[in-house]
Design a protein around this nucleic acid. Structure first.
Length: 547
RNA sequence: GCCCCCAUCGUCUAGAGGCCUAGGACACUGGCUUUUCAUGCCAGCGACAGGGGUUCGAAUCCCCUUGGGGGUGCCA
């Protein structure tokens, strides 16, 4: 069938899969699945200065983790490859030759400096830069000469003298005036194609029928249409997706992480909990001068530096990349479900859907036009429900969480205990929550984090009532043989009753003494998991210290 | 500056001229459950940006204003 639907997701290997990229990938996936078509991944690695080693693998791993399987592309191959633009250079050169021969493209030799100058001048004059098309196009010999002289040689497209209308499946007809587009570069000086050119050639070669991408590409689309016409290609259907914005209304970007850390560092240094030298060491920047620049928002820290600082400050970084959400303890199907709703609403009005259910009813006509803000609370809510609904799924998810969080205190905990943890934490929101809540059960006594407010309120307040209570209940615990949650419950409730104290008066001091905080799993499980010996040791230590 | 896109509760959205005294979800507030934190259950609060038209009738159509977003690269 020649009208087989073919969609593609075309990321650049510059980092992890971004949440916005994931949404674009998802919609392309859903459209292909819904229409019984083919979903393709193509790697757009034409900017040699921006490619990051290892990024492609991470990106594809994130796609796999999400469950967005592709039918053609890297790792799986296909009949329309290669699927890396860097391996398709001959194709672009051939297409460029075709345009050159047809008089639809011409050589240009301007240097960066010359172009910058023209741009600045145009800006000063209050207008947009517009490449001045020469009266006579340089010849092949001129190009040779320029090359010999060491000038950059690029190829520019002769943009047609007409307004071009994009028929967008979501936005409707959008006309971009001819005056807004100039003779843009299609082949760079290094012989690589520009994005605009590569996209057009590849989409044709790969028989792409539907191009779904972010709205930031809308203005570029006339360039692609003009190119397609000049080359005699088909023009696929276009659909420009609304942008996903951060809660504050700006674009979701790594900058948010930077800001979070910068603010926290400032506060910590002011409070004296973190010193300058340590900041410099953790940040990973070369010297104090660079650190100063970072403080002034002139530069951004790299991911590792941000991670180290966040860890030192016990700070949770805002999630931006899919990998961030994975590390924070969200389930992939939840993320997909949530981001699908950012811009799309199913006809049946349901909100909770599996990938297959979404694919069963995805429809471009139900994709909205307005930008959507990312709401972590709603994502959290979805995750809470999903993770608490299916114990087996939750266990697998927890194992995955541990696989990407090597420093987790839960590392090395056996499966039976993990199951118990899941059970006694029923109602948890993310795996990170379980980790926070249960860390005290798996760290050494010396490593316990003491919450001053908890100690004050539960142990010291009222003439050390809590400490007194601890000392009083201690013998009962020491005498107890059955250290199971049930045995503990029987014994402790009996103790409370016999001594005429509210159960909370017994449980809370124990909680703080054993975990250093007012937040923990149910008290009987906390005791049981910790083991009798550890419990008595921690109680004794607190009683000794606070008396 | 110029060009393009957008505009319903705090947020995501339903709504395609009368079905809307505008529905749902999340958040928020109050109550209940509870040994902590969560979860759960119940109830409540809460929007058609403003102004002009068109029409018997407008959240829905048109125009203007305002606001938001995007673009203006040999980045994608």
């Amino acid at each position: 069938m020649s009208d087989q639907v073919r969609t593609r997701f075309a990321p650049s290997p510059t980092g992890y899969l971004h949440i916005g990229g994931a949404r674009t990938a998802l919609f392309n996936y859903l459209l292909a699945r819904r229409l019984g078509g083919t979903f393709i991944i193509r790697v757009e690695d034409t900017d040699q200065t921006r490619n990051i080693a290892g990024a492609e693998d991470k990106l594809l791993d994130d796609m796999r983790w999400l469950g967005l399987d592709w039918d053609e592309g890297p790792r799986v191959g296909g009949d329309f490859g290669p699927y890396h633009q860097s391996q398709r250079l001959q194709r672009y050169q051939a297409a460029a030759r075709q345009l050159l021969d047809a008089g639809r493209a011409y050589y240009a030799f301007d240097t960066r400096e010359e172009l910058d100058e023209l741009r600045t001048a145009a800006e000063k004059a209050g207008g947009s830069f517009y490449y001045p098309r020469p009266d006579r196009f340089p010849s092949e010999a001129d190009a040779e000469r320029a090359r010999a002289e060491g000038r950059p040689v690029v190829l520019r497209f002769l943009y047609p003298d007409e307004d071009i209308t994009v028929r967008d499946e979501i936005l409707g007809d959008v006309t971009v005036p001819r005056s807004e587009v100039d003779d843009f570069v299609i082949l760079k000086a290094d012989g690589f194609p520009t994005y605009h050119f590569a996209v057009v050639v590849d989409d044709e070669d790969m028989r792409i029928t539907h191009v779904l991408r972010g709205q930031e590409h809308l203005i570029n689309t006339p360039k692609h249409i003009a190119l397609q016409r000049a080359l005699g290609y088909r023009t696929p259907a276009f659909a420009h997706l609304p942008v996903i914005l951060a809660a504050g209304g700006s674009k979701m970007s790594k900058r948010e992480k930077d800001k979070t850390v910068r603010d926290a560092v400032r506060d910590a240094v002011a409070a004296g909990t973190l010193d300058e030298a340590r900041v410099l060491e953790l940040s990973g920047v070369a010297d104090a001068e660079q650190l100063k620049r970072w403080r002034k928002k002139k530069i951004q820290l790299d991911a590792d530096g941000l991670e180290r600082l966040a860890a030192a400050l016990q700070l949770d970084l805002p999630e931006i990349d899919i990998h961030d959400f994975r590390r924070s303890g969200y389930l992939p199907e939840v993320i997909l479900n949530y981001i699908a709703l950012l811009g799309w609403s199913p006809a049946d009005g349901r909100e909770r859907m599996t990938l297959a259910e979404m694919a069963g009813q995805f429809d471009l006509s139900r994709v909205g036009k307005t930008n959507a803000r990312f709401d972590r609370d709603k994502l959290l809510s979805f995750n809470t429900d999903t993770v608490n609904a299916d114990p087996e799924r939750a266990l697998a998810g927890l194992k995955d969480y541990l696989a990407v969080n090597p420093a987790s205190p839960l590392q090395g905990v056996d499966e039976a205990t993990l199951r118990t943890l899941l059970e006694i934490n029923a109602g948890y929101r993310t795996y990170r929550d379980i980790e926070h809540k249960c860390a005290a059960l798996f760290v050494e006594d010396e490593a316990l984090a003491w919450d001053d407010k908890a100690v004050e309120k539960v142990l010291r307040k009222g003439d050390k009532a809590g400490v007194t209570q601890l000392a009083a209940v201690r013998p009962a615990l020491a005498d107890l043989a059955d250290w199971s949650p049930e045995g503990l419950e029987t014994a402790l409730k009996q103790y409370a009753e016999q001594n005429g104290v509210g159960f909370g008066k017994v449980a809370q001091p124990l909680r703080v003494a054993l975990t250093g905080s007012m937040i923990s799993p149910p008290i009987f499980h906390t005791l049981s998991l910790l083991g009798k010996e550890t419990c008595l040791r921690r109680v004794d230590a607190v009683v000794a210290r606070e008396t």
